Amino acid sequence: MLYRRFGRTELQMPVFSCGGMRYQFKWQDVPRDQVPSDNQANLEATIRRAFDLGIYHIETARGYGSSEMQLGQILPKLPREKLISQTKIVPIADPKAFQKTFEKSLSYLKLDYVDLLGLHGINNQETLDDALRCLEVVRKLQDQGKVRFVGFSTHGSTESIVNAIETNQFDYVNLHWYYINQQNWKAIESANDRDMGVFIISPSNKGGNLYDPPKRLVDLCAPLSPMVFNNLFCLSHPQVHTLSVGAAKPSDFDEHLKTLELLDRADEILPPILERLEQAAIERLGSDWVKNWRVGLPDVEETPGRLNLHTVLWLRNLAIAYDLVDYAKMRYNLLGQGSHWFPGARVNEIDIEALRPYLTQSPFADRIPELLHETHQLLGGEAVKRLSQQ
């Protein structure tokens, strides 16, 4: 395993972290005796494999159902001096209720303290305001030795992430950034300016469902698998410290490990693959579109009906350029189902004609309405709920 300094925490963070949202039994709290023995055995085997590999960062959340409770059966058995424990709790307007939730998390985990406490889902100004109110409680928890460092996780816009970073109240950030979605680079730079740790959320799943990639993407990333390519792309940037591996079983680490021996040669390995990927997109979408499609697009709050125009067109690009149709369908049909976690409407829920006056700054203003119709025909389907809502 390789390690990177996790910003001002000074923790030596493994470049892969073990995320805790795919091996648990339920997305709701359940009594311990309702967890099937084979499920618990698999979870414990996954955590032990992570430790055997030097992946000492175990990351979960109060919102991951039975994950904390099940981890509490294995974490106290591990060497505490090596374990980097992290849980995440959604900030709320009532700090006292937030503290009660934290105490529940700590009791489930059966730990005296957590190394990293993340305020979960700072996605807009309202959730940032709630988080800042909860920080008074968090500081007391730090004084009591129950929390070492505090950060936040986010699915918000780059602007909202930077706003949270610029409060300088957080030691690290969990955010989305990978090859197919590089929008948050400004936020990563801002975090580095403040010496914060940078944790990339779900690069293999949210980064294109790379556990089951389409053949076109496999061919374009050769000789690497799309998963290893994406890992190498992310970790070739020293501003990124760790990538989450949402392991569901012990063997899920295997493909990721192939990245480690390649890091020293990233400058040699990546350029031809990056060139192929760019040319493949240009081949199917056109050079002008690939280079300029984002220009002048209104954001979701400025768009009639709250159409998430950037996301809709981005998903269309991925489906057409790289055959990431299944991934794009899944993400498209989440729109409007996840509140501030994945905001905006789908195309069939808005009046496209009412959109035209808001497109005047786009060089593709005349094309976009028809492209939106095309995108809904390609990707539309049954609305999809977030995993935690299922």
Score class of each variant (00 low, 15 high):
61 A>V: 06
50 A>M: 10
169 Q>V: 15
121 G>D: 06
303 T>S: 06
287 S>A: 15
319 A>S: 13
80 R>C: 10
20 G>L: 05
59 E>R: 02
256 H>T: 07
116 L>Y: 01
340 H>F: 08
167 T>A: 12
154 T>G: 06
342 F>E: 13
303 T>P: 01
236 S>A: 12
43 L>W: 01
98 F>I: 03
217 L>R: 00
249 K>Y: 05
115 D>V: 13
66 S>P: 13
230 N>S: 10
300 V>H: 03
176 H>E: 11
360 T>D: 11
316 R>Q: 07
157 S>C: 08
271 P>V: 15
112 D>W: 04
48 R>P: 01
243 L>K: 00
183 Q>V: 15
259 T>G: 03
189 E>S: 10
177 W>I: 08
5 R>A: 08
255 E>D: 14
364 F>K: 08
199 F>D: 00
11 L>F: 13
251 S>C: 09
59 E>C: 06
213 P>S: 13
334 L>W: 03
137 V>T: 15
97 A>V: 08
139 R>I: 08
294 R>G: 11
276 R>G: 11
310 H>Q: 13
11 L>M: 12
105 S>K: 09
287 S>G: 14
85 S>Y: 01
324 L>V: 05
330 M>Y: 14
148 R>K: 14
123 N>V: 06
164 A>F: 04
167 T>K: 11
35 V>G: 09
43 L>M: 14
285 L>G: 05
155 H>M: 11
31 P>H: 12
86 Q>K: 10
211 Y>P: 04
290 V>M: 14
187 A>I: 02
44 E>R: 06
266 A>H: 07
235 L>D: 00
274 L>T: 03
189 E>D: 13
101 T>F: 12
60 T>G: 04
152 F>A: 02
11 L>R: 02
228 V>A: 04
203 P>F: 01
333 N>Q: 08
233 F>R: 00
366 D>N: 15
22 R>Q: 14
347 V>E: 00
244 S>W: 02
327 Y>M: 08
282 I>Y: 02
347 V>P: 00
291 K>V: 03
85 S>R: 01
122 I>V: 13
300 V>A: 07
25 F>E: 09
149 F>Y: 15
116 L>I: 15
272 P>N: 11
154 T>A: 10
274 L>R: 03
239 Q>T: 04
14 P>S: 12
386 R>T: 12
286 G>K: 05
176 H>Y: 11
212 D>M: 04
166 E>T: 14
170 F>K: 01
207 G>E: 07
